[in-house]
Amino acid sequence: MPVIIDAARRAVVGERRQLTLGELAALAALPDEDVPALADAAHAVRVAWCGDTVEVEGILSAKTGGCPEDCHFCSQSAKFDTPVKALPLLRDDEVLAAARETAEVGASEFCLVYAVRGPDERLMRHLEHVVGLVGRETGLNVAVSAGILTPEQAGRLAGAGAHRYNHNLETARSFFPRIVTTHTWDERFATCRLVRDNGMELCCGVLLGMGESPAQRIELLGELREVGPAEVPVNFLDPRPGTPLADRPIMAALEAIRWIALFRLALPDVILRYAGGREVTLGELQEMGMTSGINALITGNYLTTLGRSPQQDIVMLKGLKMPIGSLSKVI
């Protein structure tokens, strides 16, 4: 095993010291043959900091398509000619049915996602009603993802019982203008801050494979440390027809494993969740990701694309002897 991997493992597991961005950059530059050792070190960090429990979540697009933003990876943007068109807000009974599906597969988390720039008053009233309804009826922890918030809206969502709020940074500040032009990275960062300031857990994800450089991924890790999320969903680009990123190549599986491991080494205490694109990127290497630092997953389908069946994930976790449970950030 290369000396720098051993040193990183000792620093994070033994000394409980945060690796510097320079140390992480050196690990990112290791050759492919060192990735399994890097993954092994990341798994040791995950077990030491978070234990062996895996948090399982289901997600639902409760308002699909027609989004005014131009996130270049997203098939729900109204700016691009994609097969995903606008649908009306789901009714309570439709949301509850999806939440019950999620509870039945053994998940503890359910995230309601809305394709909007930010909530208007009608959506706020819906959220204030539906978050409590789903929680009471299913016992699930309910998270929300509804775009950019005002301070008043963040307070209302916390008051309504939203357990976690998802707002992704997606990519490094220096790369963001290449991906989104209708809002800024700083606006995203500000909403992330509001989430924490109002007592909700922050779920702040990333999307890898959009053309960002390794240095920009390291930059993103530093930015995530600044914003302090409880959870980081790791998405890999699944190029969608009609979007500006439709022709981007899918990230190589071993490269994805390398970056899962680096995210765990950089963020030892977070809930690091397998998210969109894992099927097309990792293929048969799903188990390897689970032993490279991941300790949570979105199971079943995504917002507009299909994932593995939840049963496949349950069988995988049983085989890995990783119990399913609810997690919170290690304090």
């Binding site: 599906e101 199971t299 079943g300 507009t304």
Partner: peptide, 12 residues
């Protein structure tokens, strides 16, 4: 024609 497609955690 275009379909109104709704994806849920365990189906569509």
């Amino acid at each position: 024609r275009w379909l109104a497609t709704q994806v849920t955690p365990t189906g569509w």
